[in-house]
Amino acid sequence: MSAETIQSRREWLLSDRPASRLQARLGRAYVAWRRFSANRLALVGMLIIIALLVVAAFADVLAPYSPTVGDLKNARLLPPGAAHWFGTDDLGRDIYSRIVYGARWTLYVVILVAIIAAPIGLLVGTIAGYAGGWTDTILMRITDIFLAFPKLVLALAFVAALGPGIENAVLAIAITSWPPYARIARAETLTVRNSDYIKAVQLMGASPFRIVLRHIMPLCISSLIIRVTLDMAGIILTAAGLGFLGLGAQPPLPEWGAMIASGRRFILDQWWVAAAPGAAILIVSLGFNLLGDGLRDALDPRSGDQ
């Protein structure tokens, strides 16, 4: 490809008068990408998350040992070395392999929480914003009440009642994390509610249900995605905290928080058992934070670098 064709493609993308909807969309995406990729930290964040996805997808290939069955006879609490990169734990399991498989559980938790909490928030926020009046007041009061709760403590109490386990931990985190999404969705709804195109759809006889679902919700998606990405780190930390307290994933699942808990007993002599999974949590939540910051700056220039 010559320099000239690249040049003309860029012009096509950045054109002030896009000839088609596709061109306009691609152009906007290109501008956002240029803004995003100018931010080096955001690129680092994206690389971390891509690495997480790759590790989770190819865990079977990347992990040299089983994550759940160890060599109790020969490989208990070995320090990091050539055979076991991050050492082994008290059951003779390879810590590196457990971390690789743990990536799956981390993704499992964040994705499940996101697909439970985000739609709830979206629904509550758009309905409140579009309906207005008493519906709005009551829904937003409930949202604010949940927003005023201490999240981790409430999640603890929920799991205490539901019983420990990774699914219940997901549920508890989701129950405590939807309110910010409702606020964002409501704010977005209020800005478009009285616009001409909504009036036009109303005149055409669309039901409120259809208007909210087809014409308002899609506009809330991008700010919601930014917020969800920024929240991912918090979700990971809460899930790891629950795992650490023995309320999240149960043994022998290789969940990172639970791995730290099991390494706690040997922390003074065999520090590596707890050190490696904690570092994994730190890197992945850092990745989500960097990515979220980058997305916010790229897609929502108004907020600047505040």
Binding site: A233, L237, A240, G241, F244, G257, I260, G263, R264, I267, L268, W271, A274, A275, P277, G278, I281, L282, S285, L286, F288, N289, L290
Partner: peptide, 21 residues
Amino acid sequence: LIGYSVPIFWLGLLGLVLFYA
């Protein structure tokens, strides 16, 4: 950013290893 991303209980354990042990 690290403060936002670090699991506090893990940092506490490492702190015990370094400053106590």
